[in-house]
């Protein structure tokens, strides 16, 4: 049981770190630019497809990953330039609709380009297999690599936001947009940068997951909803909140799915327990979100405005 707990804890953390990579961009775009971006999940998908395509061309996943990330960034910049910058003075509703339309277009676009069958990529040789982590317990190397890369990016983001001028602008932008532009910062360039970086982080997350889950159309939709849950729980605009909430959602979802039924079995009949467990498991994070919002309507780490 302890072994399983450790294993599932690692799984939950890895899932949480992945959610954080996607959520970091979304919460900044939301917090700094005040744009609701439903196409953010599609950018995760685009990252996955880019990595798959480049791996096919280069014949090596690590090279494919390295190529995919700048292209994901470029893609985000182009999207901002073409569409998103027209949304800054629009209502949230208009933003929801336009990015919903973009999401439909991107989902269908990859289907036209790559077909509807999933595309998979082989694990890099050096990162395949598993290593012992605790006694007889083994864990896949690649998942540890995802965990490490995600934590690295989180650390880098924290450093950038709290230790650099750009970060200061971002923090200021999230709490008082007018002030930042009044101070003479080119707000358009800042927004372009934020959106591009968000697209790149989401694309990076998608690209890293390709060897595990393979690229397929609509793969971003579930991630999008989960990420929204994360940033709302964490408090919109707060990177720290997104990080804590992402790990919380990852752990609650993973541990709930595997230990929920076991817990229920000690409370009720086995048949009843598995039925209830199946009903409750997918609802768990939504219940978590509703409960947190009912107590703290602005999330765990509300940004002061």
């Amino acid at each position: 049981m302890t072994n399983l707990l450790i294993l599932q804890g690692l799984n939950g953390l890895q899932f949480g770190v992945l959610l954080f990579l996607v959520a970091a961009g979304l919460t900044l775009i939301f917090g700094v630019m005040d744009v609701i971006n439903l196409a953010h999940g599609a950018q995760y998908m685009v990252g996955a497809y880019l990595a798959a395509a480049f791996t096919g061309l280069a014949g090596n996943f690590l090279l494919g990953l390295v190529l995919a990330v700048p292209v994901a960034l470029a893609f985000g910049l182009v999207l901002e330039w073409l569409v998103i910058r027209r949304l800054y003075d629009r209502s949230h509703l208009d933003q929801v609709l336009v990015t919903f339309g973009l999401m439909l277009m991107l989902n269908e676009g990859v289907r036209i380009l790559w077909g509807s069958a999933p595309i998979s990529v082989d694990l890099p040789e050096a990162l395949s297999g598993s290593i012992p982590v605790w006694g007889t317990l083994r864990y896949p190397v690649y998942r540890l690599a995802i965990l490490g890369a995600g934590l690295g990016v989180a650390l880098g983001l924290w450093w950038m936001i709290h230790r650099t001028r750009l970060g200061m602008l971002l923090r200021a932008g999230a709490s008082n947009r007018a002030m930042v532009s009044a101070l003479g910062t080119d707000i358009n360039r800042l927004f372009l940068l934020v959106f591009g970086a968000g697209a790149m982080l989401a694309g990076f997350a998608g690209a890293m997951m390709v060897p595990v889950i393979s690229a397929e159309p609509d793969m971003g939709d579930t991630v999008l909803i989960l990420t929204f849950v994360v940033i709302v729980i964490g408090g919109i605009g707060s990177i720290r909140g997104a990080f804590v909430a992402a790990l919380l959602v990852g752990l609650v979802d993973t541990l709930g799915r595997s230990f929920g039924p076991i817990l229920l079995r000690s409370l009720m009949e086995p048949d009843m327990a598995s039925q209830t467990g199946r009903t409750l498991a997918p609802m768990l994070i939504y219940i978590l979100m509703a409960a947190i919002l009912a107590v703290r309507p602005a999330g765990l780490f509300p940004v002061q405005r």
Binding site: H92, V232, I236, Y286, M289, A290, L293, A294, P297
Partner: peptide, 17 residues
């Protein structure tokens, strides 16, 4: 009890439930 985007998200949560 919530406003704006949080309202959007909490109604989404109940819808999903």
């Amino acid at each position: 009890r919530t406003r704006g985007v949080h309202f959007i998200m909490i109604t989404l949560a109940f819808g999903q439930m």
